[in-house]
Design a binder for these strands. Structure first.
Lengths: 412, 412
DNA sequence: CCCGCACGGTAGAGCGCTCTCCCGCCCCTG
DNA sequence: CAGGGGCGGGAGAGCGCTCTACCGTGCGGG
């Protein structure tokens, strides 16, 4: 088709030097006569040369990518639910289409486009056996739905956007890029490991959504460079960044007390998650130390709905509440809705303190007073740690703990 | 360090066959005696062989990745604003740290960790000249902040999470992965082009946040495989997927009319964006055809705040409104807040119809009646189109237009 | 009986780059 | 003026894979 892309060889010929010299110029290495450097650079310009990554990777054994993996529970049965509302209450109006199925117009010619190319004979060249992975082909669609739902759900929490921001912020100046992977089943987890073993990426940045995510252990066992966001449920010899969650709980408690709240409750995160426990512990301890030994707790699932449900039950049992601490902002939003539904004004009747300082904290009304987690910085540091491990600058697992900060807005 | 990873050669020796045979087995190609297949597979097992991607890519000229690029405006001056609130209203409580700066504990040993490794002499080996890109090193931190902010902002809109979900849903069954890139400045845009030209990825999936994003044209000019989400501002010979926005506006108008609304206004998206114009046009036309020639319009910026502001001004000028159509869900949320602040009940006094059916549609109260955009399917189709282009199954630019659907919930 | 031809496998030539040697030159020193 | 030591540059050996020849069987048909 289009003529071959120019190679080092071509540039060398054009500039009248050897391949090695061009390589040196391109990589900015060693002492090359400025005049020749110029010569070479001009030749590069003329030929429109772009170094072939694959060839470079083959010899350097380094890619320019790291895997950014969002890792879920474990067995493939996974969460589910939650998202149902989206579809269940939909209602058809125009009789044209069966279910959001698109239609081609203009020059469009759909034909074989949409139906997962299960047609051709070149199937073998694709996903299936391409790399010794046996599975493939068959259960595509089933796994597919799961996949989409998981990814969508993950990014519905603004938290992950901040992680991505922090990671990219660190990677980009180093000309590196994250490849996005989701690992919520044994197969997808294996895929991550395989991908790294094949040299698809130099290491992994792992954000788990579940306490006993087996991925970190797999990675550690395969001796692949990896850094975690948050301390793993079971100890694993990997570096990680985390927040002083206990401290965050303390900040929330102190703020509510300082405001004069006396009948305080809390909506905790999933108690299987260490972070949830620590936030709760820090909150409780502080309250207890100030003479409030008993704090009603309801457990939520870090979602708006669960926050609303938890708050509703708390209101029922303790109608005279005047302060609430929720373990994240999404649940705070839900709690506020529940409080409002029960005729409580926020913050006049009940003060609410969230956690994270995510984007909803400023978009919801009243704007949330919350415990800020410096997610972007944590993510950037995570990325830096991985870099260190990859380059061998650091061998031992290391952890970096960040301090939370109280951000006072309108809700408390 | 750890002993070399096993190669094809090793496996071949172990199995007592030739390299080529092992390769065939691994790739599931052609006729290989089942007995030998078994032999080879066992040898693979024993050696723990994983094919080296770089080597394979070098000869096949195909990677297993596509770039998923979120592309912003143009000149680097970019939006800004909006996110300020996050930080401005923060308040310090404990005197320990200067500004969300983390602190190392446990085995932590920060030292050179955080400060962007501006130390070593191996700088040259990194981002800088590594690929002829001259820039680098210097303005790292400045560009950094921009970068982080952009990425965070982008993912604050649940819309992008759905795009990612759709893309991954299509890619994963094919053992492909998206590498995430943000292109909001001329440099970052060039980086995307360079990355593709270097063979870092086989093609690009582009989601623009701005109408006259120059990236599509750059990509087309470089004859790189690329597919866009939404029709580009200026015509560009690239495939794209899009929604029948006009149709969406019509659905919203019909619903409000059917509900009996008569004093209807609308909060449009940025009018520079084609989609905004079309949604508005469809909405207006339908209303006009039903005898409502005049529809007050306020322009928003697709954010909660802008929706609130727009709605506030509309209320001021037209206190007797009974129906609103907003060009996306985030603005609907803002509009509802504004309406509530002005003592209007939704939907009793004013009916509100959003657009997108994003996750906020179900989390906000009242839950949003909205025009659903099948983003996941659109993204999956976009991905499929790219695949076709990459494999040469499709040469001409193609567009696929999807139909929106009305989802009735509580707000109208 | 021999030819042709599938079938199952091997040999080996690259893919485009990096990097270690090595060599020739110039300058400095003894 | 000989000898040593940079320094700038070239030659060439791979990196690990794919894939195009090509070759040796065994078998059916002329």
């Amino acid at each position: 088709m289009s003529r071959q892309a120019p190679t080092l060889e071509d540039v060398a010929r054009e500039a009248g030097v050897s391949r090695a010299t061009v390589s040196r110029v391109v990589n900015g290495v060693r002492n090359v006569d400025p005049a020749i450097q110029d010569l070479v650079r001009r030749a590069i310009e003329r030929t429109g040369y772009a170094p072939n990554q694959a060839a470079r990777q083959l010899v350097t054994r380094r890619t320019t990518t790291v895997a950014l993996v969002v890792s879920g529970a474990g067995d493939g049965s996974e969460t589910g639910g939650k998202e149902d509302g989206h579809r269940r209450d939909r209602q058809r109006r125009d009789g044209q289409r069966t279910d959001g199925e698109g239609v081609g117009r203009e020059e469009a010619n759909r034909g074989e486009v949409n139906r997962d190319g299960t047609s051709g004979g070149e199937v073998n060249r694709d996903g299936a056996n391409r790399d010794g992975t046996s599975g493939g082909e068959a259960n595509r669609d089933g796994a597919n739905r799961e996949q989409i739902a998981f990814a969508t759900r993950v990014f519905a929490d603004p938290f992950f956007g901040r992680v991505v921001g922090g990671v990219v912020g660190h990677l980009r100046p180093r000309s590196m890029h994250p490849v996005l992977m989701f690992a919520e089943t044994p197969e997808t987890r294996q895929e991550v490991v395989t991908y790294l073993r094949q040299g698809g990426a130099d290491g992994a940045l792992v954000v788990s959504t579940h306490p006993d995510d087996p991925l970190p252990a797999l990675l550690a066992e395969a001796r692949l460079p990896a850094v975690l966001f948050a301390r793993p449920g079971r100890p694993v010899p990997l570096s990680y960044v985390d927040l002083a969650h206990r401290e965050g709980g303390r900040l929330a408690a102190e703020h509510l007390l300082a405001r004069g709240c006396r009948r305080i409750v809390t909506v905790a995160g999933p108690l299987a998650v260490a972070a949830s426990q620590e936030r709760l512990a820090g909150f409780r301890d502080t309250l207890a130390r100030q003479g409030n030994p008993y704090v009603p707790v309801a457990e939520g699932g870090f979602t708006v709905d669960s926050g609303m449900a938890a708050m509703t039950s708390l209101i029922a049992e303790h109608p005279d509440i005047d302060g609430v601490f929720t373990a994240n902002d999404l649940m705070a939003q839900g709690a506020i809705q529940a409080l409002r539904d029960h005729g409580r004004r926020v913050p006049q009747d009940v003060a609410v303190v969230g956690f994270d300082d995510s984007s909803v904290a400023v978009t919801c009304r009243p704007r949330l007073t919350t415990v800020r987690q410096p997610v972007e910085e944590m993510a950037a540091t995570m990325s830096g740690l991985l870099d260190d491990h990859i380059r061998g600058r650091r061998r031992e697992p290391t952890s970096v703990i960040f301090d939370p900060e109280l951000v006072v807005r309108d809700s408390a």
